[in-house]
Design a protein around this nucleic acid. Structure first.
Length: 849
DNA sequence: CATTTGCATGATTAT
DNA sequence: TAATCATGCAAATGC
């Protein structure tokens, strides 16, 4: 299994375990969601828990057919591939047939297991030429398969054992594609060994690199990262004899390997212009490049792979008037960016690219910035658990001059030739931008969510940014954005991102987004029949469609409803209708009597209200199904809380105990804004009812939010009981108003207009309670026009009195929690207290304070 | 008393 | 379970 890295610069989670679903596009892009933050994983193609959805689209990992999964009644049509994802059965079968005709790739390129994979000099010249004629599509497929199996393999020398472990199917597929792509090899691969001598990843890589060497095949890679000859003169600190380094774990270098972005591949050129579409959204993908040569670079975690774009690289090379080889990069932690001035270097990076040091004191390292200025840092290490911890000391001035903060990325490159180290940076974008990127860019296969700056502003210094600390307009806005981002993410970028409000929201919006994927407009699918099932096959990636709602009313059967973009009237559609993003009554080809905005709505306001509510319930059930805890993945406390927030009380109302109530809470650290961490140290005085400290105000606010929700749910229940009774309408409207406001605040990326009905449909992505969010942000949630939180002060006080909680604010956290536990109607409060004071539900305070 | 320094700890991730 | 690394923390040093 390969590891995946979250593309979110502030997350960068690498995982091999958990996945969100996503899309793979023919153009070569992959988009899966980080389980941690909801951003897109990079180089991801497979998923342990890949499963067919009740609707939506999937692409065969082998033939790239686009399958409308909604047509698929049985998963027997698809096979879950060893490496994840799906393949249609016809492909898997044919691939197995094809595999016996495989070419002996290694023979073509020399011994794949003993030669250095990238050594183009070992290739017969005719092969190099031949390779340039490789069918790009096939190679792209090959790339995908390779990365599907093990992205890291593309840059690693792996022995046959490892190769064998990748699974039979996968190997066959690789060979198949190579075989199909092998038109270019045909001359040279005479000795076809039919019995599979499967492609070694190195060999595959060599093919890919040959492909890269020829600009015609990889235009976006034309910016060389190494010596254009294919061999490189760049071997930083090659002697690399360092005490304590485990040489046995360091495979030999792959000579002649030039750094290259591995995937997504450039979009296929084609008449359909799909590549245009993709590029329109994200002009240039930020792809992790396999690391350049260096001692132990094969151990470099992909999270540290440089992600400089070709454009940026070109700019940087131009600025420094030298060929630049990206080495690695690191997202700054709070410690790195703090005043302490120590930048912790990833061990592998330090040992790969920095000079070997034997003394803890290390040595001074002169590093140039992109402006040509020279900085001197102390490169040293600390002994740590029989290992070393490498740090760069004295980075504060540099960090400050670059105006970097935790979450930003610092990059290390090297001039070639010369080997001069170059330091650069990339500012992280703020969260809202990232969210936007999630919902717009991902589904069409562009996986970049990281940064949005121009090539000029990306790597390098802010224009006008100076040592003097004066900030010009651009930098000021940047600084403000950064401030905002920092507030949202917090200084502990990675850890605090866990289960943050934004992440939870992203999970939902992504799931919702899945439901919005539609066939590309004006494209007639070809129909393929597999095992008597007709499948739609599209050459174009899906597009975002219009949101519709489904109802599951037993008396009516399942229905689909859509809202006209012009008149906002709701129109009934066939259950399987798929709408384009923009849809109006005039597009209503199913009901000629209601194909005009002048036609009255089919439903009465009352029915409409019911419809929306039923739809919401339907959605809740679906989400509940999805979030149903499994032995593999139980909801953590915050997951459960988020689900509860989304689903109302469905979870909490059940007799089952809240799964994962003993949630792992992020380790409490300074800067953490959770309710635990913002409280005063224990034993330092009690709070009075009138106390307005952060803790009390937060507790109060959260209590109010809970009360509000409870009231809302209660109203809904009552309404359901007396269905059809208009008595509830006023209250419902009030709730809807609140919901609208919340959605407007929280869900701006959904293009939710002022229309109440429309926003209500989008409910699943809003209204969440997050006990770990910043109090200031919560103000937004309660700042509802006409329904100020102040209005419910009274219920809050009453509740306190009724429940004997007058001492609520006076008690310390533990007594608060236990007090709440003792209340009979405190289901929400119980959750609140469990989350707020996990010490009660955990074995101990991890910090022991 | 503030800051720096060196190391220890433990959360997280990789194997 | 091992490795990594972010950060805590106390001793050392400086002002």
């Amino acid at each position: 299994m390969g590891s995946k890295i979250c593309m979110n610069a502030l997350c960068r989670t690498t995982t091999t375990r958990e996945w969100k679903r996503g899309w793979r596009l023919r153009s070569g892009g992959y988009a899966y969601l980080c389980y941690t933050c909801g951003s897109a994983y990079e180089n991801s193609i497979y998923c342990d828990t890949f499963h067919l959805e009740e609707s939506g689209w999937r692409e065969c990992n082998i033939c790239s057919k686009r399958l409308h999964c909604g047509c698929i009644a049985s998963s027997s049509l698809l096979e879950i591939l060893d490496f994840g994802g799906i393949g249609c059965t016809s492909c898997t079968r044919s691939s197995q047939l094809h595999s016996i005709h495989s070419y002996d790739i290694s023979n073509c390129f020399g011994s794949s297991t003993t030669n250095n994979a990238g050594d183009l000099e070992s290739f017969p010249p005719e092969n190099q030429v031949a390779a340039s004629t490789l069918n790009e599509g096939k190679l792209a497929q090959l790339c995908r398969l390779m990365e599907a199996n093990e992205p890291n393999l593309l840059c690693q020398s792996e022995g046959p054992d490892k190769n064998a472990s990748l699974g039979q199917f996968r190997q066959e597929e690789i060979v198949q594609i190579i075989g199909e792509a092998g038109i270019g090899f045909s001359d040279a691969s005479q000795s076809s060994v039919g019995e599979s001598k499967f492609a070694n990843p190195d060999t595959i890589r060599s093919i890919l690199e040959m492909k890269d060497m020829h600009g015609s095949l990889a235009p976006s890679l034309s910016m060389t990262l190494g010596a254009p000859s294919g061999t490189t003169s760049f071997v930083p600190y090659p002697c690399g004899v360092v005490e304590g380094r485990d040489k046995s774990k360091t495979p030999p270098f792959q000579q002649g390997q030039s750094s290259r972005p591995i995937l997504p591949k450039p979009s296929k050129p084609g008449p359909a212009g799909s590549s245009k579409t993709s590029k329109a959204v994200v002009p240039e993908l930020r792809i992790a490049r396999p690391p350049a040569e260096g001692q132990g670079k094969n151990q470099l975690l992909p999270r540290y792979w440089p992600r400089i774009t070709d454009q940026e690289l070109q700019k940087l090379s131009g600025d420094l008037n030298s060929n630049i080889v990206p080495l690695f990069e690191k997202v700054l932690s709070a410690s790195d960016a703090g005043r302490i001035g120590r930048l912790v270097l990833p061990k592998a990076c330090a040992e790969a690219y920095f000079p070997p040091i034997s003394q803890s004191e290390g040595l001074p390292l002169r590093i140039q910035d992109v402006k040509g200025r020279e900085w001197t840092f102390q490169f040293r290490f600390w002994p740590n658990n029989n290992s070393r911890m490498y740090v760069l000391e004295g980075v504060t001035p540099c960090i400050q001059s670059m105006q970097l903060q935790a979450g930003d990325t610092i990059t290390f490159s090297q001039k070639d030739p010369g080997g001069k180290l170059v330091i650069g940076f990339r500012k992280a974008r703020n969260n809202s931008d990232m969210q936007e990127a999630q919902t717009t860019a991902l589904p069409i296969g562009t996986a970049s969510t990281e940064t949005s700056f121009s090539a000029v502003g990306d790597i390098g210094w802010n224009k006008g940014g100076s040592h003097g600390g004066t900030i010009n307009g651009d930098a000021q806005s940047l600084a403000m954005a950064e401030k905002k981002r920092t507030r949202n993410i917090g200084p502990k970028s990675k850890r605090l991102l866990m289960h943050s409000e934004d992440a939870l929201e992203l999970r939902l919006t992504w799931e919702e987004a899945q439901d919005l994927l539609r066939p590309p407009p004006n494209v007639k699918p070809s129909i393929v029949t597999i095992e008597d099932h007709e499948l739609e096959e599209y050459d174009e990636p899906p597009v975002f469609g219009k949101r519709t709602i489904f109802t599951d009313r037993s008396s009516w059967g399942q229905e689909q409803w859509a809202q006209c973009d012009d008149c906002s009237k709701w129109r009934k559609l066939p259950e399987d209708a798929l709408l384009p993003p923009k849809w109006t009554c005039s597009d209503n080809v199913w009901d000629s009597s209601r194909c005009s905005c002048s036609a009255p709505e089919e439903m009465s306001p009352k029915d409409l209200d019911n419809l929306l509510r039923v739809s919401k319930d339907f959605k809740k059930r679906r989400i509940l199904e999805r979030h149903k805890p499994s032995p593999d993945r139980e909801l953590s406390g915050l997951d459960a809380l988020a689900s509860a927030a989304v689903l109302g009380d469905n979870i909490g109302d059940s007799d089952e105990p809240l799964v994962g109530a003993t949630t792992k809470h992020p380790r409490h650290r300074p800067g953490c804004t959770c309710i635990v961490c913002i409280q005063p140290p224990s034993g330092k005085g009690k709070h009075k009812p009138t106390c307005t400290c952060n803790v009390c105000m937060t507790v109060k606010r959260r209590f109010k939010t809970l009360m509000l929700r409870k009231k809302k749910r209660q109203s809904e229940r009552e309404a359901e009981i007396s269905q059809g009774n208009n008595d509830r309408k006023d209250e419902s409207e009030m709730i809807s108003t609140l919901s609208d406001a919340l959605l407007t605040v929280n869900n701006s990326e959904n293009e939710v207009g002022p229309n109440k009905k429309q926003t209500e449909v989008a409910e699943t992505s809003a209204g969440q309670i997050d006990l770990n969010c910043h109090p200031n942000r919560e103000e937004m949630q309660v700042d509802v026009p006409g329904l100020s939180m102040m209005n419910i002060d009274e219920p809050f006080d009453n509740y306190i009195k009724q429940n004997g909680l007058a001492n609520l604010m006076c008690e310390r956290q533990s007594s608060f929690a236990s007090c709440l536990h003792s209340q009979t109607n405190g289901e929400n409060l119980r959750r609140l207290s469990d989350e707020a004071y996990p010490e009660d539900s955990m074995d101990s305070n991890p910090r022991g304070d």
